[in-house]
């Protein structure tokens, strides 16, 4: 018998072990739900899985009586659009300022302290300011995501830029490169996969800021919906929505990871 630390699961047992906790959660939930419903058929706290499915089918495929929209898709579209614009703008800004600060000491001296300062401001604390300045429309929500994750992206990419080996910067100069060429031919291509990694890390916060902003002021969106139906204790909608959001977050992360492996093989395959 090998020592425990040297025992590796095979393919089948790896999957089985991975799925086991999910199955357990589902079983425990169903049992508890059944027990509560047996006592009180009108219990709202732990709706039966069939009930949740019913509600979600309604949200996804039956036009809303009030607006005539398919609510689930309308909410998903609105939220993903905000997330994409907010994260996209943040990634672009992070890339530009991160590389500029990392590569050019004169810019770093000017910008680095202020970026560090801004990154210490809790974004949720300035949400009222955003609502006052940008109104209750789309812009304020996008700005919250933007302000929430941009400082992290700038600081992370600045750090990654400064980690590019000095040897390679010197090498570029001995091959005749000017500052701009060093940025576009050496730094930018090497930072791109690191940008994807940084964006993946910041997506968790981005979702947090999105849902917070939607909860406070919105007329559609995943966060708006769960906070709206909370008033009616509609756990049959809230729970599936949370699972749906989790699935979306997982898919986004998965796609970014796959894309990075496909596009930047030299980054992922090198042995460190």
């Amino acid at each position: 018998m090998k020592k425990l630390i040297n025992q590796q699961p095979g393919v089948v047992s790896r999957w089985a072990l991975g799925l086991l906790p999910f199955v357990l959660i589902a079983v425990v939930y169903t049992l508890s739900s059944n027990a509560r419903l047996a006592e009180n058929p009108n219990d709202k706290l732990l709706p039966a899985p069939s009930h949740m499915l019913e509600s979600m089918t309604r949200m996804a495929f039956e036009p809303s009586k009030r607006t005539g929209e398919l609510l689930l898709w309308q909410d998903t579209g609105a939220s993903l659009e905000r997330l994409a614009i907010g994260v996209g703008l943040a990634a672009l800004t992070g890339l530009v300022f991160g590389i500029a600060n990392g590569a050019i000491p004169l810019l770093r001296a000017g910008f680095s302290p202020v970026v560090t300062g801004i990154s210490l401001v809790p974004p949720m604390a300035i949400l009222p300011i955003l609502f006052i300045t940008f109104g209750l429309e789309e812009l304020a929500k996008i700005m919250l995501i933007f302000i929430g994750i941009t400082p992290f992206l700038i600081r992370d990419l600045q750090q990654r830029t400064m980690e590019i080996p000095e040897e390679q910067i010197i090498k570029m100069q001995t091959l005749g490169a000017n500052t701009w060429q060093i940025i576009v031919r050496l730094i930018l291509p090497q930072i791109m996969p690191r940008l994807i990694t940084a964006v993946r890390l910041s997506l968790g916060s981005a979702w947090l800021f999105l849902i917070a902003a939607e909860a406070i002021a919105a007329t559609e969106g995943l966060g708006y919906r769960i906070f709206l139906v909370r008033r009616y204790l509609s756990m049959d909608v809230i729970l599936p929505y949370v699972m749906w959001i989790t699935l979306l977050a997982f898919l986004l992360d998965f796609c970014l990871n796959r894309y990075s492996h496909w596009r930047y093989p030299w980054f992922h395959d090198r042995s460190l």
Binding site: P165, A177, W180, V184, Q190, Y264, R270
Partner: peptide, 28 residues
């Protein structure tokens, strides 16, 4: 001793680099 070549370029692109940099000041 190490880190002399650029990890994000293939061997051929590494060697072409000097010429590419000379070909265009902006795009390299």
């Amino acid at each position: 001793q190490r880190y002399s070549v650029l990890p994000h370029l293939t061997a051929e692109r590494n060697v072409m680099l000097a010429g590419e940099l000379a070909a265009n000041r902006y795009t390299g």
